[in-house]
Amino acid sequence: MGEAIVFYGLSAFILGFAVLVISTRNTVHSVLFLVASFLFVAMLYVLLGAEFLAVIQVLVYAGGIVVLYLFVVMLVNLKRAPETHQDPRRQTRLGVAVAGAVLAEFLAIIVYSSTNPSAPAVLAAGEVIEGGNVEQVGWLLYTNYLIPFELASILLLVAMVGAIVLAQREL
């Protein structure tokens, strides 16, 4: 019951903010809605018992990638005056309503997760990894998936060099 309430609330927020991302005229607002959508996806990961993935989502997506987007949106100057609405209090009321809904969602998640501790993971052939979610993910990353992990780091290095070269004044 509690899980259903949390899941449907989170789904509504994720899909609603995703629709706002692709429907808003102002690009900066679109990026901010994207942050909100990513944060709610991170909460969905907590609901699924993937705490490490939730932290990575907040750090890399909401913290890193979105800042990159904001920088690009501000660098490419889109020469459009921000439209003003007739009723200036309307956005305040809307903001308060959305903030209240988000707070209720947080409380629901806290209540649900405090009553349902996550179960330990079981590897193939009955092998059980002890410890929390971070230890399990780290164990798999450095044993079974060591080569893909190193390839991902090389990919990130290449992307970093490529981005620096592309952003140079004289291409």
Partner: peptide
């Protein structure tokens, strides 16, 4: 997520 970060960096460049 790692691939998405690389894609965002190069694409925005």
């Amino acid at each position: 997520i790692a691939v998405a970060a690389a894609e965002a960096a190069v694409g925005l460049g």
